[in-house]
Nucleic acid binder design. Structure first.
Lengths: 130, 130
DNA sequence: CCTTGACTTGGAGTTAGCTCCAGGTTCTAA
DNA sequence: TTAGAACCTGGAGCTAACTCCAAGTCAAGG
């Protein structure tokens, strides 16, 4: 696959794909005779994983660390597992944080919906503070 | 309350609190005779709300828009509700995205836990690609 | 043969959201 | 009454993660 195909497939710009490769987040992609990137199935699978983690907020640096360990072979299995577990914990707390915010938004929206409109002034405090 | 007290209470640095006020994310806080900020209960409630939204990833710009509308009174109620609903939708899709990433992390970790260690090479593909 | 368009590289620029700093004032405790 | 801590303001600096750009290569169509 060419870079534009991969770009369209995953919704990452060609610039981003090149950038990811440059910083070591994606292992070096093979080039054809004239130096143009030719993405393999394997490359795509990895990119999809990266896309998934990035869009969940996992830091680029962490993912680089992970791919680096991966390339070092079986001796790094424990370290990799550690990273995954750390990221899982972080993800869980961020999800909890977001659920709290969501509950709050829902409450506020309900206030607006319960024809709060005409008595907004009176109930302003209540509506804003929970 | 002084700025350091508020800072400690919400885990936002004094610099951040001043910054938020400067950009209009927090309405102007009253100063005492010698120009030092004196946060009211009201200020604190607002800051807590902002903190909650920010830590869920709601953009500063969006929150500024919201507080601006709020200060313009009852004529902006519909617009405010609109913002809240947009943010709720965004939040929901981000939570979904994060749950997908979480499921994936959990799967990978399980692979590592199921004594994948000795057969890592054989199952490498499976472990990485889902 | 020549132009067009997609690709290459290395490096510079951009954006959001803080974070730090200099230079100045004011409160607090010895 | 003086040293030091905490505060003020305006502005500069920083970090993460892209995003854009210039200058060059190459394949394909007219």
């Amino acid at each position: 696959m060419t870079i534009t195909e991969v770009s369209k497939k995953f919704g990452l710009s060609p610039d981003t794909l090149r950038y990811y490769e440059r910083i070591g987040l994606i292992p070096r992609v093979n080039r054809n005779e004239s130096g143009i990137r030719e993405y393999t199935e394997e490359d795509c699978k990895w990119i999809e994983f990266i896309k998934c983690m990035r869009s969940a907020g996992v830091q680029v640096e962490t993912l680089i660390e992970y791919v680096t360990l991966l390339q070092q072979g079986d001796t790094t299995i424990e370290a990799r597992k550690q990273i995954l577990m750390e990221q899982r914990d972080k993800l869980i707390s961020r999800i909890e944080e977001m659920n709290r915010a969501l509950a709050r938004l829902n409450f506020k929206i309900e206030q607006y919906e319960a024809r709060l409109v005409p008595v907004e002034n009176k109930l302003k405090r209540l509506a804003h503070n929970i």
